[in-house]
Write a protein that binds this DNA or RNA. Structure first.
Lengths: 196, 196
DNA sequence: ATCATAATAGACCGATTAGTCAATCTACCC
DNA sequence: GGGTAGATTGACTAATCGGTCTATTATGAT
């Protein structure tokens, strides 16, 4: 799987991730990507038809990786609270361990440079979170507010915690902050009598 | 205040706001801005020294405007809960009524194209929110979590509500959603006994 | 009427861009 | 060793970019 083939392609993707984060899409010339990656300009366009195709591949790769991370150790049989806590912890840990990829998603998850089709495909990966929230509402564990509202607040709050952790960059352990954050989030979305 | 002077300068700012939102900073040529605004290239560089100066002016203008909106009808003597509800409502209404400006702030509030100095100056406008949250924690009305965590969650949740409203673009009244959203946010950050 | 200053215009310039292309290199099969 | 398909290269191009410059017009004070 790691031949001279995969190496250069991956070097281009890795370099592009860094540069797009730091300088934006149009702010990063393809010539800069290839120079930093140590390949020729032609090599980039051998693997990716256009610059847009490159960022779209990057976007879908990372979104898939993120989905895998969020989904880890989720047991459908567990109570809703435990499942949501798991997702929350998975998200925060993934973000803290992959700051570049987290930053990339924040910057480009609504960017016009990425086709609407890719945005849809990326979103579709997270229906399992939607389903869990819906079940929580149906079972009366979560407040009966609109699903979209609950989902949006849950996602936004968790992302905010990651941002906060990254801005303090390793100056404190993340585990206690993670638990405190879940308490805040849970109290917001859970029905009064149901939080254990 | 509205001479032929202010007109063209404002036309450039208005057009730049739209185009930067739709296409990003580097994705928007100055020539496109001037064409859409109906002025000559020279006129843009008469009012703004560089393209960066243009976006920085836009950024600080909007951030100031936003601060004014958030601060409206805040009475220091009111209870903390009422003040936070007011800010929350002000924010959501401003975002719903100024979708372009809201989108611009989301996209560029951490963008590298805007100087660190301008970012600082922009942030400094919102210390009054910080102060209210701190007072809430001191008085025991809000949970004793770290100020940064409380502040981040409050801001992120409110922004998420605006995003939700904008994505549904006028298909429902915003007032009920606004109240529901505040309930969620408040239950998350408030101390158990203190939500009234 | 005169003059100074600011507003406006758009042709123009050097630098930079995304993407091409013909040529070479590498790896592997027979 | 001969052949083939894919990987790799970097000089090259047509187009576009941010910004300059000079010229012209509008405004207003005296």
């Amino acid at each position: 799987m790691t031949g001279p083939h995969t190496d250069k392609r991956q070097a281009i993707l890795d370099t592009a991730l860094d540069l797009f984060c730091e300088r934006g899409f149009h702010g990063t010339p393809t010539s800069m990507i290839t120079r930093e990656a140590g390949v020729a300009t032609g090599t980039l366009f051998h693997y990716f038809r256009t610059k847009e195709a490159l960022i779209e591949t990057l976007y879908l790769d990372i979104k898939g990786e993120m989905r895998e991370a969020l989904y880890a150790h989720i047991e459908t049989k567990d109570p809703i609270r435990a499942q949501i806590q798991r997702i929350c912890a998975n998200y925060i840990r993934w973000g803290a361990e992959n700051p570049r990829k987290f930053q990339f998603m924040e910057q480009f998850c609504n960017a016009p440079q990425i086709s609407a089709h890719a945005h849809e495909e990326g979103m579709a990966q997270f229906t399992f979170v939607h389903d869990i929230v819906r079940r929580g509402i149906d079972e009366g564990v979560l407040k009966p507010h609109p699903l979209g509202l609950q989902f949006a607040m849950f996602g936004a709050s968790t992302a905010a915690v990651v941002r906060l952790i990254l801005s303090r960059a390793g100056r404190e352990a993340i585990d206690p902050l993670m638990d405190e954050a879940f308490d805040l989030i849970w109290d917001g979305i859970a029905a009064p009598a149901a939080d254990q």
